[in-house]
Nucleic acid binder design. Structure first.
Lengths: 201, 201, 201, 201
DNA sequence: GTATAACCGAGACGGTACGTCAGGTCTTGAT
DNA sequence: ATCAAGACCTGACGTACCGTCTCGGTTATAC
């Protein structure tokens, strides 16, 4: 093997330029108006070069998002409440980002018709975030703060759903620190932690 | 004498056929693949006729959704928990409907670039639902079940966000009765109703 | 018979307005850009009213031309040369008219695909003019100026062809008195009248 | 180094196919019924490809005509009469061609509204033919057959007008050898050549 | 004087074609 | 093998007229 590596090598700066141009256009104009031709033009290159790296728009955007929002750094703060607040502050930043707001709904629409791309998106973007939340719950169980959670999926939806909603629907209040507190409190209450519900004193 | 209503009147069956065809295609193929030409063809008419009634795809789809999911019948069940369960069962049906699942994300994407259409969507589709939730809370306050809620927006996001999430993101569990219970319990807990959190016995 | 003549009679001013509007638009914008809708609008009426009087654009324009350029008044001037000059002066005016220049070529194009309309155009517009020319030749024969002409069609083409050409092709010299002299001289020469060819002294 | 000639070169077979399809449709159905879509379809290609080469129907048809009837080969036959007969036989063939008959009037109509296209048509189609006629007259002057012609435009109209008329107006006799003789005789008479007028013996 | 019939305005309707835009592929010459 | 350039096929866009139709309402003659 390794007869590979013949011919002119790829210009790696082009890969970056393409992903960056994609993010810029997503933030400026949204998904539908982010055309392949415009991405290539803004990156200073051409369509065939783009297609050599990304099979279509869905994959291009998915890869741009993964590249930009790839991994949540979840720290162990020592308490469940601390971990959840950390998680939610990160998510508020994420869903407040104009790139993600511009990309999300349009991308989700196309994923409905492209099962393969949907799988990629789930495994590289969605699943890691949900896994991070599950890990927070596991650590809390190990600490003895809560009993083993029997439906971590629900907790994920509970903490992320309201944020997603504010990010995607028009005319709603902005994502802010209040929302962090509210979602964390709701999660703690749902997990049976006393003092979780209502306002903190 | 009213000089209004001149000329050949519109064939209202066509209006119906167009909205129905729109819903069918949204359910079958999603928003992006629901082309104006296909809608017109399936409705048994032509593009100019469609454009006489709907200025563009955003308005067509918005009107189709409003027509189909126009008004939530909120009954007064006598208790806050009952009202919320009623509300959530209705929302589970709504977000589980393939028409709405097919339409939602794509429509939201285009609304980002069309402020006028976004306003219409908000006022005719979103606002009435949030108002219904607010009414449920007011009734509970009048009954003395809860103190006046100082952030009804948050309760709306709390009960709807998780449903929206399951409806829009790929690879998540289905919308079911369990989710009704979980969201209602979370809402009650967040409203300070004792016994709200956790599973009901 | 004569159960006709019931109901509201036609408003004859509309017929006039339609023909006039047709001529105006033909002169301003040519045949192709003279749409039925514009004619009706400018006449202050509507399409169905127009179609009640004219089956289609070809007939509308034909009737407008016949109405405007209906009949050549051919006077007997006493000499062949005088008759021909009279004829040609009339034709120069005719082919110089912006209405006819605007209408002619476009109308001829559509006549190619509508044999019935072509027949109407020939019989009501073309044939009378050629007959007038033939009559001039007959009168000259009766006067003894020329022998009986055995190919009057050719004389028609000879006197009219150059005018038609200048009227229809772009970039050619204007129709003027010189052309009257030249065509008359050529016709006389072709008819064997000595002194016909060349310039008159 | 010339940076010209980049990108994929045009498939010249497509250019040919488009011009040929245009001529076929012009001959079959005339100008008005020669739609861009049909031309593209018959050429086995698509509208955008057609529009890449021809800005609109006027230019497409003009270029098709120039391509097909591009240049009159005027031979020097040694005599004025011979040259004119040669010219006229060529013109009879030209105006008898169904492609040109189908295209001419419709094209002329649209040229009235498109000055730029009219200029192209004049310079590439009309002017060369008139120049050829002028050259015939110059050669005759050089030979001493006639004095210098002071109005060659008139001779052009004289020899071409009658042919154009027969080609464009419906219901007229066909273009034939007789017309060649008649026009040549008229031209010679008009140029002052004795024996020009009337029938040849 | 009251039917009755044709007229008129307005505008919806099914069509067909327009000229444009973008997606995704392919071909060329050059690096 | 990759790159810039751009041609190519495909399919949908939103618009413009065509010629027809259906209305509500208006005149006239005919009964």
């Amino acid at each position: 093997m390794s007869v590979n590596q013949m011919g002119r090598p790829r210009d790696e700066r082009l890969g970056r330029a393409l992903l960056d141009a994609t993010c810029e256009l997503l933030a400026e104009r949204g998904y539908a108006a982010t055309t392949i031709e415009d991405v290539a033009r803004r990156a200073g290159t051409t369509k065939p070069t783009l297609y050599r790296r990304h099979r279509n728009r869905v994959e291009l955007v998915t890869e741009a998002l993964v590249d930009r929002f790839g991994h949540d750094p979840t720290h162990d703060t020592g308490t469940l409440r601390g971990d959840l607040e950390d998680l939610q502050r990160h998510q508020v930043t994420l869903f407040g980002d104009p790139v993600l707001r511009g990309a999300m709904v349009g991308l989700l629409d196309e994923l409905r018709a492209d099962e393969e791309a949907a799988t990629v998106f789930v495994s590289r973007f969605l699943a890691p975030r949900r896994a991070a939340t599950a890990r927070v719950l596991e650590r809390a169980t190990e600490r003895g703060e809560i009993a083993a959670c029997d439906d971590p999926e629900w907790i994920c939806d509970l903490v992320t759903g309201p944020l997603l909603m504010r990010a995607m629907l028009p005319g709603l209040p902005p994502l802010d620190e209040t929302l962090v507190e509210q979602t964390v409190a709701a999660a703690l209450a749902s997990l049976g932690v006393s003092g979780g519900a209502g306002r903190r004193p």
